[in-house]
C-alpha cells in the first residue's frame, strides 16, 4: 500500500523542501515515488502544500491527491486546504508552537513536534523543517535517517553547502525527540506493515 502524505505550511518554511527530500530519500531506498507541489501560493508568506506518495510498486495515486493518510503541518495557516482531505485516523505531525491550533483533529493521531526549538538547538531556526523530517522518519520508518541525510545533502545547491552540518544535526534531533518520547516506529508506513508477516 502506498503512503500518501500532505505537507502544509507557509511559503518559506521549507514545505517544498520537506516533500522533495522525503521523496528523494525514498527513491534512494528503491521505493517508487511521486511528488508534487500545489501551485498558487509559492511566494514567501503564501500557502504551500505538497503531496508525496511512496510505494513499493509504480505509483498509481493521482497527481492531486483527493485524500491522504499522513500530514505534516508546519503551520496552522492554510491548514484548511489539507485538514478536510485527511482520511479518518490519519497521522498528523504538527509543529508544537506554530501549528498548535489545528482545527478538527478529532479522529486523527496528532503528534506534536517542537521542530522550531530543535532547529534552533541544531544551530539554525530555519532547519525546523529538517527536524520535522527526522521526526517523521523515526515515527513511521517510511525512510531511513541515512537516506534522509543523503537526500538533504544531494539537494543543497553549492551556495548552501555550509548548512549541511546544521541540517544533519536537526534531522538527528528530530529523530531523537521521537525516541525520547518512546514513539519510534509507532506509526509505520503502510508498505512496511505489509512486509511484516501478520
Amino acid at each position: 500500500m502506498e503512503l500518501d502524505l500532505f505537507v502544509s505550511g507557509i511559503g518559506g518554511q521549507g514545505v517544498q523542501l520537506i516533500g522533495k527530500t522525503i521523496a528523494l530519500a525514498a527513491l534512494r531506498e528503491d521505493r517508487h515515488v511521486m511528488f508534487s507541489g500545489e501551485f498558487g501560493g509559492h511566494m514567501r508568506g503564501g500557502s504551500s502544500v505538497v503531496t508525496v506518495v511512496i510505494g513499493p510498486d509504480p505509483v498509481r495515486a493521482l497527481p492531486n491527491l483527493p485524500s491522504a493518510g499522513t500530514a505534516i503541518a508546519m503551520s496552522h495557516s492554510f491548514w484548511e486546504k489539507v485538514g478536510p482531505r485527511l482520511r479518518p485516523g490519519s497521522l498528523i505531525l504538527a509543529e508544537e508552537t506554530i501549528a498548535d491550533a489545528l482545527p478538527d483533529t478529532e479522529g486523527h493521531i496528532l503528534v506534536r513536534v517542537p521542530a522550531l526549538a530543535l532547529g534552533t538547538r541544531a544551530g539554525n531556526r530555519l532547519s525546523a523543517s529538517m527536524a520535522m523530517m527526522g521526526a517523521f522518519s523515526e515515527l513511521t520508518g517510511a525512510i531511513g535517517l541515512q537516506s534522509l541525510e543523503e537526500a538533504m545533502t544531494e539537494q543543497l545547491p553549492p551556495y548552501r553547502k555550509q548548512h549541511a552540518g546544521t541540517n544533519a544535526s536537526a534531522i538527528a534531533l528530530g529523530a531523537e525527540h521521537i525516541r525520547a518520547e518512546g514513539l519510534s516506529g509507532r506509526h509505520p508506513a503502510p508498505y512496511l506493515a505489509e512486509s511484516i508477516p501478520a
Binding site: A23, R31, M34
Partner: peptide, 9 residues
C-alpha cells in the same frame, strides 16, 4: 501542466 510538473521516480 499536471504531467509536466508532477515529479515521479
Amino acid at each position: 501542466n499536471l504531467i509536466a510538473r508532477t515529479q515521479m521516480g
